[in-house]
Design a protein around this nucleic acid. Structure first.
Length: 270
DNA sequence: CGACACACCTGGATGC
DNA sequence: TGCATCCAGGTGTGTC
């Protein structure tokens, strides 16, 4: 699924096309997402004007005068803008038809995504307990290091924990740990402040670099214009098992950590 | 609390 | 060609 760069790519693409527009029709063809789409979503949003498209972690927030539409893309979701009406295909679950033409189409084969209405998304239960944004000021080496005190879990699932920091998913956790030279299985509480400073810098760098390439497309992801992201070609360890480390030449290893595929260089990462 | 396994779901790749 | 198996970008929930 979309991690932060993919969600932000979607947000940036969509925002100029939908802000100021009125939602004329909300068509729901499949409400069985991760949580069933509430029956009153349509009544809440039809007729409302979109004032802003924001992002919090991997959630998109469509702001209107009366409240917010909270959208998560799950593992395989995408939001596309269609200027001309095209008949819906498989997994095109929801359309936001805009007054004056054009529509935003939500597609999600695996249906791990979600849509909620909230009077104020920021206080919605899904967003309330989230950690800081990785590209924001609050997120720094000291914060991570302090949060890791007493933690015996591996550092990789630690930085993928949205209560600690949002937006770092499996691809970028692997990539950032490689860049920082930290072994993904190292206990989070046994990493020095210095190395956390470096890790934070690498997390920021890898997310920003991916953003510049429009995100990473492994299988499903497309941005609002339907185009894939091109960061895949820049991946240094993710999905590179047995291939030579780009830094030292040793074969990249794959193992499973907290149920997620984990890629690392056993020589460069300690 | 923290750590971990599990669940949800579809489709593509792989191997026999 | 057909079928079984494995794997995939997330994250809330339940259990210890």
């Amino acid at each position: 699924m979309p991690e932060l760069p993919e969600v932000e790519t979607t947000r940036r693409g969509l925002e100029p096309l939908i802000v100021g527009r009125r939602i004329e029709t909300l068509s729901i063809r499949e409400r069985r997402l991760r949580w069933p789409i509430a029956r009153d979503l349509r009544a809440k949003l039809e007729g409302q004007q979109i004032s802003k498209l924001a992002r919090r972690g991997k959630y998109l927030i469509v702001h209107t005068q009366v409240g917010d539409l909270l959208v998560h893309l799950g593992m395989s979701g995408s939001l596309r803008f269609l200027a001309e009406p095209v008949p819906p295909g498989p997994h095109d679950h929801v359309d936001l038809g805009l007054a004056g033409g054009g529509l935003v189409r939500y597609n999600d084969p695996r249906r791990f995504g979600s849509m909620h209405f909230a009077p104020d998304a920021r206080s919605h239960w899904l967003l309330r307990e989230l950690g800081p944004e990785p590209l924001g000021d609050e997120f720094c080496g000291e914060y991570l290091w302090r949060s890791a005190r007493g933690r015996r879990a591996a550092i990789k699932p630690f930085i993928m924990n949205a209560a600690i920091v949002v937006g770092v998913g499996n691809i970028y956790a692997n990539e950032a740990l490689f860049a920082a030279g930290i072994h993904p299985a190292r206990a989070a509480g046994r990493v020095s402040l210095d190395r956390y400073e470096s890790l934070v810098a690498r997390i920021r760098a890898v997310l920003e670099a991916a953003l510049e390439q429009g995100g990473t497309t492994l299988r499903d992801f497309v941005g609002s214009d339907g185009r894939p992201g091109y960061f895949r070609q820049s991946l240094t360890v993710y999905e590179r098992a047995d291939q030579p480390c780009r830094r030292c030449g040793a074969p990249i290893r794959r193992r499973v950590l907290a149920q997620r595929a984990t890629y690392y260089c056993p020589r460069c990462q300690r």
